[in-house]
Amino acid sequence: MSQLEPFALGVIDALTALLMMAVNLLPENLAAPFEYRFMQRALLTSVLVGAICGLLSCYVVLKRWSLLGDAISHAVLPGVAVAYLLGWPFFIGAFVTGALTSLGIGAIERHTRIKSDAAMGLMFTAAFALGIVIISKIATSTHLMHILFGNVLGVKTSALLLTLLASLVALLAIWLAYRPLLLYTFDPQQAQALGFNTGAIHYGLIMLLTLTIVASLETVGIILVVAMLITPGATAHLLTDRFTTMLAISVAVGVTSAVVGLMLSVSLDVASGGTIVLVASSLFLVALLAAPRHGLVARHWRRWRLNAQA
C-alpha cells in the first residue's frame, strides 16, 4: 500500500492539473478561487462524484430503486459513526452497514408478509436513528452536519483518494458487467432464463450503489446523495431512447451540476451540497419542459397539432 501512495497522489496531481487547464479557460473572477489547493481538491472530488452518481443513477431510475438508494444512503450513518469510534476509515463502516441493511431488506421481503417499501422504510429509519444516537454521544453537531449534508470544501486528500478508488471500481465493474447489468435492469426474468446468476447481479448492483453513496458522502452528504442518484438519470431518461446515450447524458448532468454547484456555492457563500442538488434539479426542470420527444412542451405541441388536424 505504502508504495502505491505516491503513485495515487501522482494520479491525483495529474487529474487536478487537467482540471485546472479547463478552469483557467474560465473568466478571471470564476477561476480565482481555484488557486487554493482545497478548492482544487473540492473540484476534483465533485467531478468524480458527479460522474459515478450519474452513471449509477441510470440503473437506479430504470430499476425503480430510488427508495432503495434512499434507504442505503441513510443506513450508512451508523457505519460512519462506528468507524469514527474505532478510528477506521469512514468508508469501511459505511460500506458494511449499507450492505447489511440491503440484505436485511431483502430478507424481510422474502420471509415475511411485509412488502418491500415498508421493509425499506423500516430498516433505513432504524439504522439512521441508531447512527444519530451514536453520533450524538461521540461527536459534535458540526461533525454530524458535515456527514448529513456534506462538506466538500473540507475534503482531505485521503478522502479524495478513496473517492478516486471508488470511482475506478464502479467504472470498471460497469464496463466488465455491462451486458449482465443491462439485461438485469431491463428484464430480470430474461436474464434468469438465459442462465445468468441474477442473485449475484442483484447484490453486485447493490454493492456498487453502496460504494457510490459512500464515495459521495463528503461531497453532498447522506441526505442529498439520493438526489444525485435519481436526478441525473431521470433527466437523461427524458432526453434519449438509447441506453448508452442515457449513460453519457446522465454523467454529463452529474458532472455539470457538481461543478456548477460548487462554483455557485463559493461565489454566493451558501451550502455546497444543497447548491449542487439544486443545479441538478434545475437541469431536470429544463429537460422536463424542453426535451425533444418526452418533454411537456413537445407533448402538448403534438396534442395541439393532432387536434388542429382533426
Partner: peptide, 8 residues
C-alpha cells in the same frame, strides 16, 4: 412483464 419505457 416487459419494461416498454426502457431506452433501448
Amino acid at each position: 412483464h416487459m419494461e416498454w419505457d426502457f431506452p433501448i
